[in-house]
Amino acid sequence: MSSKLSLYKEFTKGIWEQNTTFKQILGMCPVLAVTVSAINGLAMALATTFVLVFSSIIVAIVKKLIPDQVRIAAYILIIATFVTIVDMVMKASYPDLSKSLGPYIPLIVVNCVILGRQEAFASKNTVFRSFLDAVGMGAGVLLSLILLGAVRELFGSGTIFGIQLLPDFYEPMLVMILPAGAFITLGLMMGLFNQIALSNKEKQRKKTIEKYLSTKNSINDPVGV
């Protein structure tokens, strides 16, 4: 079975419609753990996207060679290889960042987003489509990690990407950069997005009803009103 979406749609669906964090609720560990600041979120998202894109390409290339029974193990091995690459590069070029992300870089291996895309998409689609899908999903991860990181950093330390934004008299809310803040912020954000989606749907429904009523009135149907 191969997907019939247009190539453009294949890319954009991951950004919001099927956003892994807010819509699919997958791969929550890194989302919650590293978003103490926006820069951490950015680094984590780039690492995840790198692994996602390259393992999707490899899986899409070798999908015919992997026996069905051991496919999950094969995917995990491919993912683990790329994670090792990312980890080594990061340790060598950005030692500080690598230290602050700690064990969460190696934990990308068990990130359900990546394994999920291999199982649900790359193993059934062409290389190019898998590439687009992986880049789109990666962009979605990037969006949600930066969003969450920025909100937590803003309220927790008054800065975004290390730049002071809130005035000096603002007392930073310590709880926001503690683990509890991660859960609560993400919960509230998810609720907010759900609320927006719900009210949009409600508006659409009202519009359809109005349109229906106005066409009825214009015909001047005595029973319709």
Binding site: V175, A180, G181, A182, F183, I184, G187, L188, M190
Partner: peptide, 23 residues
Amino acid sequence: VPKAFQGAPITLIVAGILALAFM
């Protein structure tokens, strides 16, 4: 629970309060 918060959002908020308690 308000409709928008049902499911995952409220679970996360509860987990946050639980994390506060564990602190």
